[in-house]
Computed example of a mutant assay.
Amino acid sequence: MDTEAVRSFVRAAELGQLQHAADELGVTQQAVSKRIATLERQLDVRLFTRTARGVELTLDGQAFLPHARNIVTGVDRAITAIRPGSRALRIDVLGLRSAQAVVLHDYWRSRPGTDLDVVTLRVNDPRVAVAAVQAGDIDASFRTVTDAATLPRDVQMIHAFDSPLELLVGPRHPLASARTLTPPQLRRHRIWVPGIAPRSEWAEFYDQLTTAFDLRIDAAGPNFGNEVLLDALADSADVATLVGARDRYIWPTNYDLRRIPIVNPTLAYPLSLIFPRANPHPGLRAIINHFGSLTPLPEPAWRPSWATATRRSDGDGDGSGYGDPGST
């Protein structure tokens, strides 16, 4: 069924004249007449009768009108849902319990009228997320291309915020009673981070972290999800993992897991935001400005080498590079 024919029928029924409907739709009266005639043939009914003053609905037309209105409304909503600038701001996060999602949720709670669509691209390679930004499938992505020089010219990457790491352990772990920990205290302890994906930004992060502090990062085994990881920590006396301070984890009370901040230096996982250089979604600026209101990272802090270049390229790291065609 031709939705424009249905739209022509609805406007003609509401206005009572084909010419008025044609004027509103930006077509000729003949075009409206043809559309309605085609619709009548498809439905095998007459929808209008002509009068001296215009057109009037037949009984079949009256029965069809409310359904036709629903069709037109549904089409309009569908178009709005996918049109950049008119649809909700669509941002890709690494996970719905990740620090990025938590920060976006805090932003939305402070501005509940914000039209925000938080999605998760099930990909590990940040180049796939870049392609989705280029295609307009998403408006922005919390991903990092660690070699910023390889970014396409039509996308921009800025530093969003840093996520300080914590050690997550079960109650029988040797470090479970610590209030804070330093990186040297983590040496020789097994830190299990299953499913580190090759070519991902976090693979490079853990490579550099291991080298910098001589840590024992164990990536063995597939990632069966947070629940399996938390089960293992609760039952183990020697396994720990690293989590972001803002990451949301939920476990049964009897697990008695402990999240222990790492200090001197703070281990910082840098989060970047990728979005189009030209015509970014109008709702994006307020999100980027929100990053500047986040609690500053405890210093001193360690960051991977690629984070320094990203922070330098967008000024002071608070999103000030937004809209600047010279920053990357």
Rank of each mutant, 00 (worst) to 15 (best):
44 D>H: 10
153 R>V: 07
10 V>D: 06
45 V>F: 01
90 R>V: 01
226 N>E: 10
253 T>D: 12
276 P>G: 00
179 R>K: 13
214 D>R: 08
118 V>M: 01
233 L>I: 09
295 T>W: 00
103 V>S: 07
71 I>W: 13
176 A>H: 13
200 S>D: 04
61 G>T: 05
285 R>K: 14
237 A>L: 03
55 V>H: 11
213 F>S: 01
113 G>N: 10
243 V>P: 03
316 D>F: 11
65 L>S: 04
325 P>K: 04
236 S>T: 09
197 A>K: 07
309 A>K: 13
255 Y>C: 08
267 L>E: 09
298 P>H: 10
166 E>R: 13
8 S>A: 15
263 V>M: 02
99 A>N: 11
72 V>Y: 11
206 Y>K: 03
274 I>C: 13
111 R>Y: 12
302 W>K: 07
307 A>T: 11
190 R>G: 06
107 Y>I: 06
140 A>S: 11
325 P>N: 06
314 D>F: 07
314 D>L: 04
307 A>E: 02
296 P>W: 13
140 A>L: 11
150 T>I: 12
188 R>S: 08
131 A>T: 11
41 R>G: 00
312 R>P: 02
261 P>T: 08
115 D>R: 15
175 L>Q: 02
112 P>R: 07
317 G>C: 02
77 R>H: 12
146 T>N: 12
